[in-house]
Design a binder for these strands. Structure first.
Lengths: 152, 152
DNA sequence: ATATTATATTATAATTATTTTAAATATAAT
DNA sequence: ATTATATTTAAAATAATTATAATATAATAT
């Protein structure tokens, strides 16, 4: 954990931003809940536990900043809120998501499945791809089994 | 145009919804501006031109309804607003988008480039894919040429 | 050390986007 | 005609995000 905080600190410094206590607390929450897809409000409530004096606007600003620096990805699954998803160290792209329409769970795919597709987009549309957002909507493994056993 | 309105009317009737004048006006705007990616507010302003008495809430409700029936896709490019994108007739999936970070333009790819990827997701993750959202962020053809000529 | 400047944060208010409510109107069914 | 159902309107409510002004913190120059 400390190692990653340190790396993020360096990334901030490289753009002459500081890792203030509030920013550090926010990053810690994101690291602790790496598997989750927290909204700004979610992050705010969790950060308040370790830094009770923080303001919601600061959390928004921090997330926005981390987003610009590509430390987190701002994603949107179609409910009204933006969610913030920490990138793996050194990852060039936002990872993919599997959203289950039955139970609402969100799985992550870290493997980049779009390399071939991006080549096609690059060559056939002349579009220079920098990043992507890919989300699949459907039914997760878990919910498929439930449905099957329920219907028998 | 009339043909497509008729089809949509049937789709609504199939779920026992009616194509009211307000809904028809909204659909007409979406058909006319099929290439665009309008926000609810955008749609509202355009619908007002042909049906001035319509309310914003009705537009929201209509878009939500069309969205449920998979006649339009509600998409989100990371600015704060939802945008509504008419599906091609008979299309099973939301089409792909190319968002240019230089000029903000949005191109569409109607071809489904994800068939192979979906097979992998299905087989290796056991996730039953129903739909997808794929957006590429990068630099469009147009802006690439501008950048090249400007830097020479 | 101290004054000066720049940057960041807080609390609150304001803004924007969207949804809900309640009353009125229209449509369809009996 | 009467009743039930669906839809719209306008207003109010809610949710998400951003702006503002005051304060605090840190960085630099004196």
């Amino acid at each position: 954990m400390e190692h990653r905080i340190d790396r993020i600190k360096k990334q901030l410094h490289a753009q002459s931003y500081k890792l203030t206590p509030q920013r550090e607390a926010t990053v810690r929450v994101l690291l602790e809940r790496e598997e989750d897809h927290l909204s700004a409000e979610d992050v705010y409530l969790l950060v308040k536990e370790i830094a009770p004096e923080i303001g919601l606007a600061t959390v928004y600003r921090t997330l926005e900043l981390l987003s610009e620096l590509k430390i987190v990805d701002k994603i949107n699954f179609g409910d009204g809120v933006s969610r913030y998803d920490l990138r793996k160290e050194g990852a060039k792209h936002s990872h993919h998501h599997l959203v289950c329409s039955e139970c609402g769970s969100v799985e992550e795919i870290e493997e980049d499945l779009l390399e071939e597709v991006e080549k096609i987009v690059q060559n056939e549309w002349g579009f220079q791809v920098k990043d992507h957002r890919l989300t699949f909507h459907g039914v997760c493994k878990q919910c498929q089994t439930i449905t099957v056993s329920a219907s028998s």
